[in-house]
Amino acid sequence: MEKLTSPYKWGMVIDLDRCTGCGACVVACQAENNVAICDKKEIAEGRNMHWLRIERFWVGEYPDVRVRFLPVMCQHCHDAPCEPVCPVYASYHNPDGLNGQVYNRCVGTRYCGNNCPYAVRVFNFYQHEWPKPLENQLSPDITVRPRGVMEKCSFCIQRIRRVKETAKGEGRLIRDGEVQPACAQTCPAEALTFGNMADPESRAARLARSPRGFQLLEQLGTHPSVIYLKGGGREHVG
């Protein structure tokens, strides 16, 4: 039986002033988490499986035009709208503050997908295949999801677990920066900082206190674990 309380509350800080929109994190996430390869048709149907997307917004008109990038993954809401609606507890809250997803349990009602205001839940409409020998790239750390189930960003829970076990073996807590989700690890601009928000001295917790901090769709009261830092500048044009 696992402990019911946890010294960890995992969170992510996304600095929009650093993010260049490059998309490295998207591929990192796909590589780390056995995220399906979706062909053009599938994406045209609105069934892309990426767990992390870079939203790109145009603001203004030429020449006074800007672009805003917004990386969006599961916000691991502390009051997650996706959790209570799941009839089978496939979407659940774990003691570390993560929104977990039990693929085997999911019956595919897609109710959670509707109720996730961030639209980060992706559903396996297809049975995805990796043509041989591409399947060799699949990570043995996580399952390959069958058709009919919902999936989404897990904050790279397999990485958390691995470090947790190491730390447990050494009889200590996880050190700040010891866990890095794939997206944060690769981000060239270091726009993504992952860490334990329960530790006020962690890098993530310190960044989260920035006056630039805000949460996505804050007004809904979902209390996300992802804190965004506002992008600055971009006031001059011409």
Partner: peptide
């Protein structure tokens, strides 16, 4: 076949 034979997608899951 799978649910792809429907017209459902993200975000219209119902």
């Amino acid at each position: 076949r799978g649910m792809y034979v429907t017209g459902l997608d993200r975000p219209v899951m119902w």
